[in-house]
Amino acid sequence: MADVKIATRESYGKALAELGKVNPDVVVFDADLAGATKTGTFKKEFPDRFFDFGIAEANMVGAAAGISTTGKIPFVSSFAMFVAGRAFEQVRNSVGYPHLNVKIGATHAGISVGEDGATHQCNEDIALMRSIPGMVVINPCDDIEARQAVFAAAEYNGPVYLRFGRLAVPAVNDENYKFQLGKGVQLKDGNKVSIIATGLMVARALEAAETLKEKGIDARVINIHTIKPIDRDIIIKAAKETDFIVTCEEHSVIGGLYSAVCEVVSQSAPCKVVPVAVMDTFGKSGPAAELLDVYGLNAENIVNKVLENIK
């Protein structure tokens, strides 16, 4: 596993530029954040297929809906807060309801935005996007997965929400990795507890599993990159084969991965599910790495949650 850390927003920008080469229908919209969302990489390669809509997210999303009806495949980008939050109703009514072929590339999700603080730290986007019928929601964990997810989104006909981060994260997958939309990935087998993680928490879940191993606890680790439609089978199997589940996400405990996993097991394989998430609170300013610790989004807290709940 390479030591180089890459932010998934960087992966997004690179993947768009690669996708632009093979798919002439791809167009990219941004709202004055091309430098930060990394769509600027696409802009440089394909200036004729890049459109800045200025600081006006609602119109950008609506225009994406419109251009998709002419056969183009728009990727619209802004920070998660503004494209999933501010433009929620446009995503819901102009994209989701008519099930249009619009891809939403949301960067700067979660508290790992860091110093900009709570106004820019979106811990609610998965909940919002997941509630829209027919919306696919993908939260990649590393560079390789993020890049493949962009290509998978372009191939899928319908609305997709892609969640990317600002913070550089370690590689979880190697070059042989094959991303499959809607399929969870078991990264480590185990029979005592299942740690189900998404996004940047996947690497931290693996780290926690190592610590648990040293303590003689055999933890299964599952990466849920596609939060909707969720891989029910892999979750039900984990619920049945291990004593309990710990979910890990850089998102509010309300409406994200924890909720999605609970929705599955409560019906099909009731078991204890313990969250590691942002616990119904706003973020604050600070370096991303420190904030993740402050909010308990680290391996230490995952280990503690396992130890607290183990029989």
């Binding site: 225009a63 419109g66 009806t69 002419t70 102009s94 008519p98």
Partner: peptide, 27 residues
């Protein structure tokens, strides 16, 4: 029906996108 509408203010944005698509596709 060329666009789903009803929530006011949204249709004109979709029309902007369609017009942009027309220009881009030389239609």
């Amino acid at each position: 029906i060329d666009m789903t509408t009803g929530s006011l203010g949204q249709g004109i944005s979709a029309a902007v996108g369609m017009a942009l698509g027309g220009k881009l596709g030389d239609k």
